[in-house]
Amino acid sequence: MTLLDVKNLTLQFDTDEGRITAVDDVSFEINPGEVLGLVGESGSGKSVTAKSLMHLNPPNAVYSPESSITLNLEDQSVDVLSLRQGSQDMQIVRGGSISMIFQEPMASFAPAITIGDQMVEQLVLHKAISEKEAMKISVEMLERVGISDPSERFNQYAFELSGGMRQRAMIAMALSTRPKLLIADEPTTALDVTIQAQVIDLMKDLVTDFNMGIIFITHDLGVIAQTADRVAVMYLGKLVEQGPVRNVIRDPAHPYTQGLLNALPKLEDLDAPLTPVPGDIPSPLERPPGCVFHTRCSAVEDRCSLSVPEMKALDRKRSAACFVAADQRGAA
């Protein structure tokens, strides 16, 4: 059974400048124990998509009637989008079955409350346990993520920890409620490479230990290659390609995925020229008609600006939203 089912998610924001489409007809699913990498550049809608999974978007967000997000738990299926803000059921989802870690750990911890108090507070809120038990679980969790002297760190404040330690503490806090799904929004972007490598190793270990699903959001394809089982590529609110990580990275089908990989400096081949994707990412206020990528695409044809390509299943469990790729690879 899939853990999470996202179907036809379309999300717009009401702003002074009009209605802006942030996510456009996105569908994907996650199985338990699977890491899904969500890749995209700024403005691609990857963070907004992740936030809608916990119903965390601001009040001016408008979901289309077709959108549905279903969380399949052991005893029940939860329709996330129908939950009312502040309701009891919402707590089953937020911080209970789904946890989230963010890019900047300093901004996610309250500065004037100790790490331990914050961990205990959310544990007591979500689980029917005493404060004493919560403390024990929290210290164990801190130790599990590789923090030395966990009982001492428990009583410290976020500013007393270094950047890498803070992100570890953040992970410990997110995992202490034993969530079924962890959303990690650029968890390593603010870290130095040597610390990033440590955090990636830690997260790989935790997936096997806890058998949870992870959505790993990042703009770094190298990080995706090292962590994800499947990858979904987004551009301007559209899902353009989805498939097993090896297939997508070694043999990308969508011209945007191809362009991203070509633009990346590769350590293995220093003589390869850096090929940028031509042009700039259009503003979300001026979304191109037809295929959103056609203004920058090297394989563009007349039909691309006229109608929107649908996600089509291609070879090897992969799908892409591109007319040209579908023709070349013989879509099913």
């Binding site: 040597t194 440590q198 990636i200 190298g222 090292q226 293995e268």
Partner: peptide, 22 residues
């Protein structure tokens, strides 16, 4: 530093000479 850069090859975890600490 070199071995900490995540490789684009999913089957190549790079050299595993990972640094401890910060």
């Amino acid at each position: 530093l070199l071995s900490a850069i995540p490789s684009l090859d999913p089957d190549n975890a790079g050299n595993t000479q990972k640094l401890e600490g910060e």
